[in-house]
């Protein structure tokens, strides 16, 4: 009674999983392409991403069965068995992430945690005014429209200052941040490759299950 409907009804991710997934996608794309490194918007978007990640991790503890960590433990042994299945051309339905996918999920989460952690360590709290440059939002309470304009004009100068901050803890954090972000891009590429591979192997359901309304 518990198992048969699980096997016959295709997997669908719940709305929290979908929203956090696509929210993180939007935040990563936004901070990679649209916002300027170290800018107020970059920090805001980063905090938003951290919040979504935190919610998804909470959901991993209290969510429905297939969203919980217990449904996809990080197990190299299972991943190896799964690779064996792929080699033999067997297709089994997984209630949650497949074992290889699970490893990818944990790798992406860990990388996101490093990215958010180093980002927050560098930026401090989110600036009240996202137009403000990092470190300048201390005077934010007095920020008027004119001042905002001024700060925006200072952007270029700010960048030079950043590259000047070569030494010290800040730049180490910045380096870790950058390395982790580059690792994240690699993982995202692998994730997409995995989705494409699995779609060709076992059908479009895997993509449909994360899409809105799917």
């Amino acid at each position: 009674m518990d198992t048969t409907p699980e096997l016959t009804t295709p997997r669908r991710w719940d709305p929290i999983v979908k929203l956090t997934h696509w929210g993180v996608v939007a935040a990563v794309i936004g901070n990679a392409i649209l916002t300027e490194e170290g800018s107020g918007w970059h920090i805001w978007l980063g905090y938003g991403l951290a919040a979504l990640l935190a919610l998804r991790l909470l959901w991993g503890l209290i969510g429905p069965a297939e969203a919980r960590f217990s449904a996809f433990p990080p197990s190299p042994a299972r991943a190896a068995a799964h690779i064996g299945e792929i080699g033999r051309g067997e297709v089994t339905q997984h209630r949650s992430h497949n074992p290889l996918g699970a490893l990818m999920v944990y790798a992406i989460w860990a990388t996101l945690l490093v990215v958010c952690g180093t980002g927050i360590a560098m930026s401090g709290p989110p600036p009240a005014d996202p137009f403000a440059q990092r470190g300048e939002h201390a005077e934010r309470t007095a920020a008027t429209g004119a001042q905002v304009q001024e700060e925006r004009e200072e952007d270029e100068a700010g960048e030079e200052r950043e590259s000047g901050e070569g030494e010290g803890e800040e730049s180490e954090l910045g380096e870790v941040h950058e390395i982790a972000v580059n690792l994240l891009y690699v993982l995202i590429a692998l994730h997409l490759a995995g989705v494409i591979f699995e779609t060709r192997r076992s059908g479009p359901q895997i993509v449909r299950s994360i899409l809105p309304g799917g």
Partner: peptide, 13 residues
């Protein structure tokens, strides 16, 4: 779900 997500983001900020 949307409410929970918005609340989570608001809470972190």
């Amino acid at each position: 779900a949307v409410t929970v997500v918005v609340q989570a983001v608001a809470a972190v900020f």
